[in-house]
C-alpha cells in the first residue's frame, strides 16, 4: 500500500505523518495524529461533525484528502482553549446549554469560529446561515444560535 507523507500545522504545532494515499483528513487526524475532536457522523458531507478550519476556511475533513493539506494551517476544536482558558464560544456553549450529547459540538464550534473571525457582530440570520451545514439531533438549534450570539457579544465587549 502506497504511503504518502503529510505535513501541516495542527493548532499551531507541526505534524508530520505517513498515511495511505487516499486517506481522508478526518482519518488522519483521528487515527494517526490522535486529535479525535473532529467527529465522523456521516462521512458524506451532510452532518458537519467533522468540520475543521483549513487556512482560515471551514472545511469538511471527511471529504478532504489528507495529502491535499500539505503545508496547510489546520485548526480543530481541541486547540481552541488557550492555556486551559476556554474560548468565548466554548464558554457560551457551556452556559447556554448548547450541547447535549456533544457529538455535533466540535463541528458547530468550528463553523461558529469562522463566522466570528470574519463577522464580529453577526445577525441571527448570519448565524443560522453559518451553522446550516451542521446537524444537531439533540439540542434543537436555538440554544446553539443563542450561544454563538452570546459569544459574539462577549468578543466585541472584550475588544471594546
Amino acid at each position: 500500500m502506497a504511503k504518502v507523507p503529510v505535513q501541516f500545522t495542527l493548532n499551531g504545532s507541526e505534524k508530520a505523518e505517513f498515511v495511505d494515499s487516499g486517506t481522508t483528513l478526518l482519518h488522519a487526524l483521528r487515527d494517526k495524529i490522535g486529535d479525535t475532536s473532529p467527529k465522523g457522523g456521516c462521512h458524506q458531507g451532510t452532518c458537519g461533525a467533522c468540520s475543521v478550519i483549513i487556512d482560515g476556511e471551514l472545511r469538511l475533513s471527511c471529504l478532504t484528502l489528507a495529502e491535499t493539506c500539505n503545508g496547510a494551517d489546520i485548526r480543530t476544536t481541541s486547540g481552541l482553549a488557550e492555556a486551559g482558558v476556554l474560548h468565548p464560544l466554548q464558554r457560551a456553549f457551556l452556559d447556554a446549554f448548547a450541547t447535549q450529547c456533544g457529538f455535533c459540538t466540535p463541528g458547530m464550534i468550528m463553523a461558529a469560529k469562522v463566522l466570528l473571525d470574519h463577522t464580529a457582530n453577526p445577525s441571527r440570520e448570519e448565524v443560522v446561515e453559518a451553522l446550516s451545514g451542521n446537524i444537531c439531533r439533540c439540542t434543537g438549534y436555538e440554544p446553539i444560535i443563542q450561544a454563538v450570539l452570546t459569544a459574539a457579544r462577549a468578543n466585541s465587549q472584550n475588544a471594546a
Binding site: G45, L58, A111
Partner: peptide, 9 residues
C-alpha cells in the same frame, strides 16, 4: 449550493 463548508470545497 450546500452549506458554508461545502461551498468552500
Amino acid at each position: 449550493v450546500g452549506g458554508p463548508a461545502i461551498r468552500n470545497m
